[in-house]
Design a protein around this nucleic acid. Structure first.
Lengths: 151, 151
DNA sequence: ATTTGTGCAAATCGTTTGCATCTGA
DNA sequence: TCAGATGCAAACGATTTGCACAAAT
């Protein structure tokens, strides 16, 4: 087991905490090999509370942290995580895609002046009187985006 | 007045109906010169009920209709219209921007399999218990997107 | 005459892809 | 071993921009 962790690229001075072990299982469960890059990215994503990151931002963060990952791999990883249900893509504005580490039922504030996304617990917004979907269609998800501007 | 309309590029066989006159005023009121291209685009946008178009789609539509407009002008026009409150940008997925000719308070169905947007009257969705916006912020708008998939 | 809009082509931005190379089970 | 992952650079699609030309007031 220790061998495995070593192989994954965590040297003697790295934290070999249960969070890392948890991540490996998280990835395995999702059918994704716990590679060095995926573990690093997962670590950055999930060890700081709920986050909303763009591919570009995560890539830079990795560089700063001295973790060599190509941008293409960041994109691949984000999409794989999303497909696996480990992340959720948030569509706030049609230019950048934001990935939300919070996959539970909730909504979003979008602060337009800062291009920043903030979670709003689902319990704090009630959507009712939803109309019937057209024939043969069903509701996949309801996204509520509360756009905020400076007062 | 008729002169003006002729200058705007509407020949003898064009419909010089009040809809066109209305459009000219609509543009003037928005502080936009009623040029040939803007009038044509406005006409395509507003004479067929509520629509959700992408720049690319509108550009093609113009070409088919024999109205020569460059794609850059279509983009410019759509943005100008949006700033003027004549259109509303809908963010459904982070790749294409859709422009909605319905600027009144309402929400959207998004049919993922067809990349199609459909209006839902605001009266058919109730959003309640909205949380307090952070200090110094106010709600600019609440967007509800009901994502549909084939059953 | 002066300001504003238009078209084109090149530039940019975010994202995806092809392919040779490497790595984990 | 060998399917699966990575990196790089080139390809891509949507959108923007710079600038010469044309049209509107």
């Amino acid at each position: 087991m220790n061998r495995e962790i070593e192989d994954a690229g965590f040297g003697a001075d790295s934290e070999l905490d249960c969070s890392t072990l948890g991540l490996m299982n998280k990835l395995r469960d999702a059918g994704l090999r716990p590679t060095r890059q995926r573990l690093s990215l997962a670590h950055m994503l999930y060890s700081k509370g709920n986050r909303h990151v763009s591919a570009e931002a995560l890539h830079e963060e990795a560089e700063v942290a001295g973790v060599p990952v190509s941008l293409a791999t960041v994109y691949n990883t984000l999409h794989q995580f999303t497909e696996a249900g480990l992340l959720r893509a948030v569509a706030v504005e049609s230019s950048k895609t934001y990935f939300d580490t919070n996959t539970s039922d909730h909504h979003h504030f979008f602060i337009e002046s800062e291009n920043r996304v903030v979670d709003v617990p689902a319990s704090h917004i009630t959507v009712s009187d939803l109309p019937e979907p057209p024939e043969g269609m069903e509701v996949a998800r309801v996204d509520v985006i509360v756009r905020l501007r400076k007062k």
